[in-house]
């Protein structure tokens, strides 16, 4: 499903070059649930952005479903994001002016297919169909994150990327979110990549990839 080969990423900070990723090679199989762990600054989020086609690597190759995508145009990358990838962010990133349902519908808007019914079905899957018309500000953090998962889920993507999905939540809501994600993985066979620094969350995944200073330092299978 995902194959990163010798990926490097260099950011320009003023005149200084900052090498965030230094030769990452990793494979993630279809249907796997993988955690990426590491201290802050280790490049976890950068990897997730590259995998999510939000960013392009400085060098190296990225094969997504056997297609080299690291040299595609920004428009083609947007198309891939729309069709294949669902994002779950630490800060939820819902649009505050829209209802929960409209936020989920927004996830369908750029992948061609859409509709209220699919959005409603996705909300139902995260157990929020009764709060469809509430705005994000009227929902708890855990509920907001569930809306965000529903948004990622609605278009039925093969890949969901979660960047510290529980980082802004209390432990109870966090567990709820993780259980939703694991059950999605178990029931629908969605490939799931979770960036986290919480060990108990990482251990609910099948495999943990440890990053440090932009390199893979260890992999463990749970």
């Amino acid at each position: 499903m995902i194959h990163l080969q010798d990926i490097t990423k260099v950011y320009l900070m003023g005149k200084r070059e900052l090498e965030v990723l230094r030769g990452i090679t990793l494979y993630i199989e279809k249907g796997e649930m993988v955690a990426i762990m590491g201290p802050s600054g280790s490049g976890k989020t950068t990897i997730l952005n590259l995998v999510g086609c939000l960013d392009k690597p400085t060098s190296g190759s990225y094969y997504l479903e056997d297609r080299e995508v690291s040299r595609l145009s920004s428009g083609e990358l947007a198309g891939i994001r729309g069709q294949k990838i669902g994002f779950v962010f630490q800060t939820f990133n819902l649009l505050p002016r829209l209802s929960a349902l409209a936020n989920v519908e927004l996830g369908l808007r750029y992948c061609g297919g859409g509709g209220r019914d699919r959005a409603m079905a996705a909300l139902d899957k995260v157990g929020l169909s009764d709060r469809a018309n509430h705005r994000p500000t009227e929902l708890s953090g855990g509920e907001q994150q569930r809306v965000a998962i529903a948004r990622a889920l609605a278009k039925n993507p093969p890949l969901i990327l979660a960047d510290e999905p529980t980082g802004n939540l209390d432990s109870h809501s966090g567990e709820e979110i993780i259980s939703i994600l694991t059950s999605l993985h178990a029931e629908q066979g969605i490939t799931l990549v979770v960036v986290t620094h919480e060990a108990n969350i990482a251990h609910q995944c099948q495999r943990i990839i440890h990053l440090k200073d932009g390199q893979v330092v260890a992999e463990e299978t749970v």
Partner: peptide
């Protein structure tokens, strides 16, 4: 700006 970022993450093209 953030809304634009969200829309882009959801697959919005520049044209959209």
């Amino acid at each position: 700006t953030r809304e634009i970022g969200i829309r882009k993450a959801l697959g919005a093209r520049e044209r959209d």
